[in-house]
């Protein structure tokens, strides 16, 4: 079942630029420029892109707080903006930089209030809360007013608050921003478990690519308002020529360079005794190693997996694949 469906989605903003003492020029800027996206029930999608790429704008259009300039969008079969309050009952939203909790109330009271606001039956509420308390370790600070919580504690509270009404779709806008390592891991483990259960659809925006590596099988990359990649992480690596690298330490430099298809020398150090090869997959690493053993005395080898940060940075700066 398709839960999120968008086509030709576009959002333009009017920007006024000073062009004289009193004169202002207006310029139309497309923050989102024709996005097509289809997400099935239970999918966990990472939605990434550089600052200003249009991630939050997309999220706002999907949740019904921003009206698209053009295009169609449906979430849970509803039109987000006109049917916003109905949609609100069926989605959960966490904005890492904003709070949906009541500042002056203890977390426990915020949750009780949400139960009434979302008209959740008492047993259902109690079940979900018990689950979150266990997985997110909430008990230690359940009675502390929200304003006194640390960022990590608050974020765990925010996640719980977004899930207590049993949303079908969970939108997370940078849920790990500013968190320490332990809190990040707690949040990721919780989301991984939620994703594994398979009945909540999750759309996650983040700048922390470790979030994506840990959590999302599908990755949508947006840049300047357009989707530049929609597929798995492996497909991204394949498409943008991310390469595994093999670093070898030799007793003596090679007499003649090796010629193997798909293998290039990235760098040589220590007078040719340390060589870094880049492999595009045409030749297996094992074959390269056996050729090296034939050619010289091999002292040490190590294989470096492609780095997601690298490939995404390349994507952002629009360096084409070689």
């Amino acid at each position: 079942m398709t839960v999120i469906e968008a086509s030709g989605l576009r959002k333009e903003f009017t920007v006024r630029v000073k062009s004289g003492w009193l004169r202002r020029r207006t310029r139309i800027v497309a923050a989102v420029d024709g996005i097509a996206l289809s997400v099935e029930r239970g999918e966990m999608v990472g939605y990434i892109g550089p600052n200003g790429a249009g991630k939050s704008t997309t999220l706002k259009m999907l949740t019904g707080v921003l009206y698209p300039s053009a295009g169609q969008v449906r979430v849970c079969g509803l039109e987000p903006v006109p049917q916003r309050t109905r949609l609100a009952l069926r989605i959960g939203v966490v904005f890492g930089q904003r709070s949906q909790l009541w500042w002056d109330l203890p977390l426990r009271d915020s949750f009780a209030l949400l139960r009434h606001v979302y008209a959740v039956p008492a047993t259902e509420h109690a079940g979900r809360l018990a689950h979150c308390r266990r997985l997110l370790d909430l008990d230690a600070f359940l009675d502390v007013p929200v304003r006194q919580l640390s960022l990590g504690q608050r974020m765990r509270g925010e996640l719980t608050a977004a899930l207590l009404h049993g949303p079908e779709v969970l939108f997370l806008d940078e849920p790990t921003i500013g968190l320490d390592l332990v809190s990040k891991q707690a949040v990721r483990a919780f989301l991984a478990a939620l994703g594994a259960a398979g009945d909540t659809t999750i759309l996650l925006t983040t700048h922390d690519l470790a979030d994506i590596e840990r959590l999302c099988r599908r990755l949508v990359v947006i840049d300047q308002g357009r989707i530049v990649h929609d597929g798995s992480l492996d497909e991204l690596h394949a498409r943008y020529g991310s390469r595994r690298r093999l670093v070898v330490d030799l007793d003596e430099p090679l007499a003649a360079p090796l010629a193997l298809p798909g293998v290039t020398v990235e760098s040589t150090q220590a007078n040719g005794r340390r060589i870094t090869y880049a492999l595009d997959g045409t030749t297996a690493a094992g074959d390269l190693v056996s050729r090296l053993v034939e050619a010289a005395a091999l002292r040490d080898i190590s294989v470096l997996e492609p780095d997601i940060e690298d490939v995404v940075a390349r994507l952002y700066t629009r360096q084409a694949a070689p």
Binding site: R90, G127, R128, L163
Partner: peptide, 14 residues
């Protein structure tokens, strides 16, 4: 009781 399964789709209003 103890899961985060989505609420069954149905009419529900505050």
């Amino acid at each position: 009781d103890d899961s985060l399964a989505p609420h069954a789709t149905g009419s529900r209003a505050p």
